[in-house]
Design a protein around this nucleic acid. Sequence first.
DNA 1: AGCATAAACGGACTTTACCCCGTTTCTGTT
DNA 2: AACAGAAACGGGGTAAAGTCCGTTTATGCT
Lengths: 204, 204
Amino acid sequence: MDRLVVSWGRPRAERADAVRNRLHLLTTAREMFAEQGADGLTMDGLAQRAGLGKGTVFRRFGTRAGIFQALMDDDERTFQQQVLAGPPPLGPGAPARERLIAYGRARAGFMVAHRAVARAALDGSQPVPVGTRAPMSQVHIRMLLGQLSLDGVDRDMLSVQLAAALDGPVLLYLSSDELDEAVDGLEECIGQAWQDLIERVCRP
Amino acid sequence: MDRLVVSWGRPRAERADAVRNRLHLLTTAREMFAEQGADGLTMDGLAQRAGLGKGTVFRRFGTRAGIFQALMDDDERTFQQQVLAGPPPLGPGAPARERLIAYGRARAGFMVAHRAVARAALDGSQPVPVGTRAPMSQVHIRMLLGQLSLDGVDRDMLSVQLAAALDGPVLLYLSSDELDEAVDGLEECIGQAWQDLIERVCRP
DNA sequence: AGCATAAACGGACTTTACCCCGTTTCTGTT
DNA sequence: AACAGAAACGGGGTAAAGTCCGTTTATGCT
């Protein structure tokens, strides 16, 4: 007895029907969001339109905000590919400082483009508001900071601060109206400000 | 005719009973929050315990998150007094760079101390998630930046970035668990990181 | 193939945020 | 002091979030 008590690695792979339903729910959610905006996306509505039970939707996403987090996750996957394996200076190959600047500019564009979903993904009652994948930004910045010579600085905290400086404007400080009015200028504005910030911080 | 069409300044002062109820609701909300945490604070429950109608609660705060925003507002009023009229270097009298550092340290402490309410005040479906009063941080930073000599920088954007660097860690990036474990060290940690950041940014 | 087990499903049920509108209370004016 | 208008109040009603548990379905093993 007790032969199989210690964990066997992963408990088991995700079941095939679960995968199918998850993908189906995700695309359905995307459709509903595109058609009716964040407010028009309800759990009942999603379940019904996807032809699944409500319980399934909740097990999958846990909470309403979870749906939007899943959508963000999905979009970030593409973005992350560019960062990890795309052409420089965003991808590997350029000096760390330039990669950092390029990353911020790209991220600014990404956040502005996905502002509605990103906002809807916020949920104060959840342990980690921004979702499982969001630290991506912070981790990547941390990695690049590691390649720079910065004396007497807590790189871990600095990476958090910089990540916040990148996402904060869209998530916390700019009203939806401001955002929607001048979308085009805003991306460049945040991107330029990011570059200025990095150049000041990384100066010897 | 049309004599009184143009606005008469303020529409009218806030009614006395409204003020009384608002204050009463605020203290009741604070009690419930202290006793049962954010989850235990429901609109019905608050109304009942305060001996008022549910409609009243909603007119006052608009939404559930609005209650927590009101609580934050209230707490920030005290904090703001220190900043506007307290002793230097937090209050007026010290050089701008030192005030900026002092402000960040104080704000870090404030955010860590009020993390639970601040988190609960987040609401992705509202135009300006952080509440009417939250720009305070950004406005104050903007003012101090104005007194520094910074060449070729968009001070407006920089102030938004810095405000985000200050609030973001608590609001967006650190999980509740991380926060609750090492509260004491965290304030100092964020404060020190802020000082490092400012010193780097403001270097000539 | 048949079986045992764990995971996923479905939808009724409960709770809660939020809306609405008839009623009450305040306040400035005469 | 009485009045008119505006603002605030109350609490029932609606819809959506989130929970639960009995049932179904996939999967690894024999």
